[in-house]
Design a protein around this nucleic acid. Structure first.
Length: 209
DNA sequence: TGCCAGGCCGGGT
DNA sequence: ACCCGGCATGGC
């Protein structure tokens, strides 16, 4: 890519916008998320208070282009509700929570699963967690580095145990994986040259990690 | 035109 | 503990 090490990679300027983007991009193309974010910005809704104040109905209409818009409108509401109840509506307070504790809290919020929680922790909160996404899995599988039956936490653990716990590194690593994935590792198996070579490697033994 | 995109939830085995 | 259907729009 043109620039290696764009520290703090993630489309989105403020912490809150990063979180909104993390929820809206669930199983959705970024171009669609952009439209939704643009609409929210136009309506001045990219703040905790503003989002708390808007109706579920209006919110859903604005984020329509991002898909699953009713589901996601609810998810956004659930998050700001959690933030208000647990952290007085303050992201600064929220992110002062120890990583493991905060991760559990986020996972308990309706609509926030492991990838979204970790994206929020890493990209909005600068906590050192490795984000595993569809691209990460697919690339590892195509390269026969995993068998494909591993859980989210298995794969996250793989990276976190193999790399120094440095949030800048995790940030950049994930950014590069997404970049590579978008260009070279699509779901519909047009194997890139590297993948094709790997196809000829032996299977991973049963007892291997 | 159908398949895909930086998931997650709820109900059923 | 897995497995599956539902959720929805826009691009190629």
């Amino acid at each position: 890519m043109a620039v290696h090490g764009p520290q703090n990679w993630w489309p989105g300027k403020t912490r809150f916008e990063v979180i909104v983007g993390a929820i809206l991009t669930q199983n959705t193309a970024w171009t669609n998320v952009q439209r939704a974010i643009t609409a929210l910005r136009r309506e001045k809704l990219l703040t905790v208070k503003a989002l708390e104040g808007v109706s579920l109905r209006k919110l859903a209409g604005l984020i329509r282009p991002s898909g699953y818009f009713r589901q996601k409108a609810r998810k956004l509401k659930e998050f700001v509700r959690y933030l208000r109840l647990q952290h007085d509506g303050s992201l600064t307070k929220m992110f002062r929570t120890p990583t493991a504790t905060l991760r559990e809290q986020l996972l308990a919020v309706h609509g926030i699963g492991p990838e979204t929680a970790d994206s929020v922790l890493l990209y909005a909160g600068k906590h050192a967690v490795f984000v595993v996404d569809a691209y990460t899995r697919r690339i590892l599988e195509r390269h026969r580095l995993v068998r494909g039956t591993e859980s989210y936490d298995d794969i996250r653990g793989l990276f976190e145990k193999s790399l120094p716990a440095n949030r800048q590194l995790f940030n950049e690593y994930h950014a590069l994986i997404v970049h590579a994935g978008k260009h070279f590792c699509h779901a519909k198996a047009p194997l890139c040259s590297t993948c094709a070579l790997r196809q000829h490697l032996p299977e991973i033994p049963e007892d291997a990690r």
